[in-house]
Design a protein around this nucleic acid. Structure first.
Length: 493
RNA sequence: GGUCACGUGGCCGAGUGGCUAGGCAGAGGUCUGCAAAACCUCGUACAGCGGUUCGACUCCGCUCGUGACCUCCA
């Protein structure tokens, strides 16, 4: 679009550990793959953070003119549990516990996941493939890996031969692991007798009779291994080498490392051009995780019904809070921080409303093009939303000064500022106005206006007892009056 | 134990070899009949100890602290 948007977008590639200029393989098209959730339980806030950060990436790439195909999978075959010998995966375990069909478990939590994504205003991906929908392709990939010689079959299971692969190709580059250290450092091999080496991982697993989710394959009845689905689905929809692959930091090893190995073994090429990893959400300095039990669900966050929460917070407050932190930093969750975000967001949204009511002047007291440039620079610099938001608060100050009549902007600048703020807040950050100002009841507005008139009359008679009583009673009903030079406005609080 | 990060003012969080991040909270002021809102001003913060440098919060080393990964997790 404008010349601003042609600025190079810099992205930290976690494969090279450097900030690099992002150049898609086939502009203007961009292929983006993000590891989605395993749908065997409710999503927690850490997941929401990761997906919100990739939503920001998706929105930004789209905003600067790329045509993005955004693929985010649903893992509906559970990854194997730690003890591979029991042959039971997470989905099956969830099904057993709740006495449900496995696909019923999958459907339930997929629905929940979608509801949460909508609640936090994350855009839908272009394709949301499921592992169970790609069994044939997964079997095909296992066959290709076997053919290349980097896998072996034992008792109906197929394992990836990590030491052999590491000896002939490179392994561990993404996560910075060295094969010798890994070999020296592996834990007990109890229950892993089928593997030649503890580092080997299953790409196809033989299913025990009691295992619920299983499919026929050339190696017998079984189910696909942990890491295969992402390799298969990214290849299918984005090609053997695609632009950006993302996920949480905790997936770097072994998941993403294994994906690279699988793709190289099966198809002979590096699958991903830019790797991007988001950092963890912490609570009181500790990683929010399922096993720690310190995670709350989005539902609990909104309702405030959790021992760590003083009260509930709106989804947009939470989204804004997350966006005020760079994706590669850990973000610590606390009531105090959330409340600060809430107030800040309120001020930002107030300014956005106020901008619509601002009257143009005949000179420019503020440099709007400069502000716009800094917003684009910030976002182009590795998606630096915290700095972009800081610029937005500079815009808030300008808007309020103009509103107070202390500064002026011409109609051209006012319009440019309005476009900038709207596109940054609504389109790029994906913030929705939490209170629906658009559909305020006209009857309610009429009533409040009537009270405002009564209060003005009282004030004109210097009957402040009456005027204050009107104001205070309205506050009691959740309606805040604000006196300005141009009259009184109101809003819900 | 191995590998890798991080440690910024009351809180959350950017950033940088020398130039104000920003938000929230707090203090003072302007406006107002009062209040709310808004605007202006204010905190000389970068874990500790050394080193490099004209100059380091920013580079290097060590120490302390915290965390992540090494096993399922975004």
């Amino acid at each position: 679009m404008s010349e601003l948007r042609k600025l190079p977008f810099q992205l930290t590639n976690t494969l090279t550990r450097r900030k690099e200029e992002f150049v898609p393989a086939a502009p203007p098209h961009v292929g983006l793959y993000v590891c989605g959730p395993t749908v065997y339980s409710d999503v927690h806030l850490g997941n929401v953070r990761t997906f919100t950060m990739f939503d920001l990436l998706y929105r930004w790439l789209t905003h600067i003119g790329y045509k993005v195909r955004y693929v985010r999978n649903i893992t509906d075959v559970g990854h194997l549990l730690g003890d591979a010998a029991d042959g039971e995966d997470r989905i099956s375990k969830g099904a057993r516990a709740e006495k449900l069909e496995p696909m019923e478990v999958v459907q339930k939590y997929t629905n929940g996941f979608h509801a949460v994504m909508r609640q936090f205003n994350n855009l839908d991906p272009s394709i949301e493939p499921t592992a169970t929908g790609h069994l044939i392709e997964q079997i095909g990939m296992v066959e290709r890996i076997l053919k290349s010689g980097y896998a072996y079959e034992t008792n109906g299971s197929v394992y990836f031969d990590v030491p052999k692969f590491a000896a002939e190709q490179s392994y561990g580059e993404l996560s910075g692991r060295k094969i010798d250290e890994l070999l020296a450092n592996t834990r007990g091999t109890e229950g892993q007798a089928e593997k030649r080496n503890p580092l080997d991982f299953a790409i196809w697993k033989n299913a025990e009779p009691e295992h619920l989710m299983k499919w026929p394959s050339p190696w017998g009845i079984g189910f696909p291994g942990w890491h295969l689905e992402c390799s298969v689905m990214s290849t299918k929809y984005l090609g053997r080498t695609f632009d950006i692959h993302g996920g949480g930091m905790d997936l770097k090893f072994p998941h993403h490392e294994c994906e690279i190995a699988q793709s190289v073994a099966a198809d002979g090429q590096q699958p991903v051009r830019y790797w991007m990893h988001t950092n963890m959400l912490t609570v009181n300095g500790r990683k929010m995780s399922k096993s720690e039990g310190n995670g709350f669900t989005p539902e609990e966050l909104v309702s405030g019904d959790h021992k760590l929460l003083e009260r509930g917070y709106g989804p947009m407050t939470v989204r804004f809070f997350m966006l005020q932190c760079h994706y590669a930093s850990t973000l610590d969750f606390s009531n105090e921080a959330l409340q600060a975000a809430e107030r800040g967001l309120e001020r930002l949204m107030d300014a956005l409303d106020r901008l619509d009511a601002s009257k143009p002047g005949d000179r420019d007291d503020a440099d709007i093009p400069g502000l716009e440039q800094r917003c684009y620079d910030a976002m182009n610099d590795d998606l630096n939303s915290p700095v972009m938001i800081a610029e937005l608060f500079e815009a808030v100050r300008i808007v309020n000064s103009v509103h107070d009549g202390k500064q002026q902007l011409t109609s051209v600048s006012l319009e440019r500022l309005r476009r900038l703020m709207r596109s940054m807040v609504y389109d790029v950050l994906g913030i929705l106005p939490e209170r629906a100002t658009g559909d305020v009841d006209t009857v309610l507005d009429g009533l409040v206006q009537e009270f405002i008139r009564l209060r003005m009359e009282a004030k004109a008679k210097r009957d402040f007892a009456t005027s204050d009583a009107i104001r205070d009673r309205l506050i009691g009903l959740g309606i805040q009056l604000k006196d300005t030079k141009d009259g009184t406005t109101w809003e819900r609080v």
